[in-house]
């Protein structure tokens, strides 16, 4: 399934359904720029990035350290703002949303898997998975809490941690913690999943297991996933590969 020569904005290769007409992308960027002021000079991290993510397609984002992979993921995840360009989620402009609206998009339509797992140490695995639901629910007391708990339990079972629900992160191995993070990212069934070096903190074997799980879940759930990595073997298992160099997709 790897396609190392795919054009960054090519929609043809991003058609997992194989139909004749190109489906509209779930997430797309046009002419995305990001720069930082460092003293008196300006550091251009992203220069006109144009890309698309499609439903059920796993896209690898490769690049050397400092190439701007994480920055691109942060922009796509609305955790940072771009200087120029557009980000479209299901055709809707989301790059210029106010903080509250951006947070709502993150809660409902984006999932994140981080290299460092980013679990809250004081909460159990189940509670960590429930956290996005609790945030998305807002101040309402009237949502179906039991249903949410069942759903979180089911996702934890899916990642193979059905019997570790009550364990807190420090009682889990690195691989298990990342599985919890994957379950947390998927519990809201977001259409887009952004994974930043998800196996970077794991040994080879555990990393492969986690990657298998992540790819499998993304594909079976029809989630558009962008996976940042600098590991060619990992990228080779994705549906598409994008290369980021000097802030531009090659």
């Amino acid at each position: 399934m790897s396609d190392t020569n795919v054009s960054p904005i090519s929609a043809n290769s991003a058609n997992p359904a194989g139909s004749g007409t190109a489906p509209s992308p779930v997430l797309a960027t046009t002419n995305l720029h990001k720069s930082y002021r460092v003293g008196n000079s300006t550091l251009h991290v992203l220069r006109g990035v144009e890309m698309e993510l499609h439903t059920g397609q796993v896209t690898a984002l490769m690049g050397s350290s400092g190439s701007g992979k994480s920055t691109l993921l942060q922009l796509l995840g609305l955790m940072d703002s771009c200087n120029q360009g557009q980000i479209l989620l299901r055709g809707r402009c989301i790059h210029n949303l106010r903080a509250g609206a951006a947070a709502k998009v993150r809660a409902q339509e984006l999932g994140f898997v981080f290299q460092q797992f980013q679990l809250i140490q004081e909460l159990s695995a189940l509670e960590n998975v429930l956290l996005p639901r609790r945030i998305a629910r807002g101040l309402s007391w009237f949502s179906n809490r039991g249903q949410e708990r069942l759903r979180a339990n089911a996702v934890l079972k899916e990642v193979g941690l059905g019997d570790r629900c009550r364990h807190r992160p420090h009682q889990l191995s690195g691989g298990e913690q990342q599985r919890v993070a994957i379950a947390r990212a998927l519990v809201s069934s977001p259409p887009v999943l952004l994974a930043d070096e998800p196996t970077g903190n794991l040994d080879r074997q555990t990393g492969n297991d986690v990657l298998d799980l992540l790819l499998n879940l993304a594909r079976t759930r029809g989630t558009a996933m962008l996976l940042a990595t600098h590991d060619k073997q990992i990228a080779a298992r994705c549906d598409r590969i994008l290369h980021l160099e000097d802030g531009q997709l090659q």
Binding site: G77, M79, A99, G100, A103, K104, V105, R106, A107, Q108, F112, F114, Q118, L119, I120, L131, P132, I135, A136, G138, L139, R184
Partner: peptide, 19 residues
Amino acid sequence: RQDIGILGALGASPLRITG
């Protein structure tokens, strides 16, 4: 700080974090 970042990444708005 890290937990606050996690909450933000998972969709908690600044107002929610204040709350």
